[in-house]
Design a protein around this nucleic acid. Structure first.
Length: 154
DNA sequence: AAAGAAATCAACCGCGGCACC
DNA sequence: CGGTGCCGCGGTTGATTTCTT
């Protein structure tokens, strides 16, 4: 559970958040709201940059975050959305309440990508391979088109 | 039972866009 | 109009845990 990073390897400082820091951050946000991360970091006086605080809040402390494994439904949805949108993790996360882009990205990179590939070969052996991101060749799709496609997928 | 591989989770980095001066 | 700085995003890394052999 609790993770004790011993690292401070090569001048680079990857340090786990302590419960105390979490508390300070949560408390500050409960008063001032999220945002203004630079200022927040400065005022809290933690040894953290604004980005770090933002990340911690968004991916971990923010209320409503769903823990635990992805359900089959969630995995299917992620797979479909990824096919549609590519690596637009924040957009995908927007469709999965309580799931963060980081977590979805992690899960994809370590598991679903492989699975999707296997599935692709097993079930669709004759379809020509699609380019990874069909939208990018002709420029960006509009947001509206995305929304429409996504709704169809759901 | 131990070593090595794979998976998971949390955190960092650089870049591009946008807002503001 | 150009420069500057903050923010959000996606890519990536590193530590730890779980699975396999």
């Amino acid at each position: 559970m609790g993770r004790a990073y011993t690292s401070s390897k090569g001048g680079f400082n990857r340090v786990a958040w302590t419960p105390h820091e979490d508390k300070r951050l949560t408390n500050y946000i409960s008063i001032h709201g999220p945002g203004k991360w630079e200022r927040l970091a400065k005022e809290l006086g933690l040894n953290r940059c604004g980005k770090s605080c933002r990340l911690r809040w968004l991916n971990y402390l923010r209320p409503g975050i769903k823990r635990g494994n992805f359900s089959k439904d969630e995995e299917d949805l992620i797979t479909r959305l990824h096919k549609l949108l590519g690596n637009k993790w924040s957009q995908i996360a927007g469709r999965l309440p309580g799931r963060t882009d980081n977590k979805i990205k992690n899960h994809w990179n370590t598991y679903l990508a492989k699975k999707a590939k296997e599935l692709h070969f097993m079930t669709l052996p004759r379809l020509h391979m699609e380019k990874e991101c069909p939208a990018s060749s002709t420029g960006e799709k509009t947001g509206e088109q995305d929304t429409q496609l996504v709704n169809e997928a759901m």
